[in-house]
Amino acid sequence: MSKRYFILGAVLIIVAFGLVLLPDSVNKDQVPPEKLLKEIMSQSRYISPDLVASRMIDEDPSIFLVDVRSAEEYSTYSLPGALNIPLENLLDNEWKPYLEQTGVDVVLISNDNLYAEQAWVLCTRSGYKNIYVLKGGLNQWFADIMQPQMPAPTEPAEAFDLYTFRKGASKYFGGGSDDQMVTSNKSESLPVIQRTKKSAAAGGC
């Protein structure tokens, strides 16, 4: 009789051990590749510097800036209120609560948007919701917000509203009053007005 119990005990332990052998810890509670691809193609992850600037000026509590550049670059300059999570330790547990906040838009910032994009892919794969990438990164931020270009007179009215908004924002972010501003209106580079409407596909050179 006790021989039967040894067999049953052994069966139970083998079934439990089988659980340990299940190979798939890499994909456990990760967003599967097909869904990640849909997210990548949706391009809805980009948020324009103007939108971020206006929300920061209104002290919108539902926006949270994360600077994925290295600590040393972060120390030279970063946007006010940005938390520095260098890309290497993006997935450390220490930063997990900041990235998976519910109801808050987390905006990833880097010089351009390559590092931010890479961070975004890994965050989306781990299943964090509402993670955004600052379109064009700090380069775009400085080109648009800190040095707003005077639109040509033929531009439509919104271009002028945008321009005045950007001048205000530039003052707000310490870009100095407009008279001091370097108005390097390089003739050959046409003023690229960042359309605030989210463009469907981020193609083109």
Binding site: R69, E73, T76, Y77, S110, N111, D112, L114, Y115, G137, L138, N139, F142, A143, M146, G174, G175
Partner: peptide, 11 residues
């Protein structure tokens, strides 16, 4: 990624 200009300096 290279910063287009030295942000700290600019500010």
């Amino acid at each position: 990624e290279k910063p287009a200009l030295d942000y700290g300096e600019f500010i």
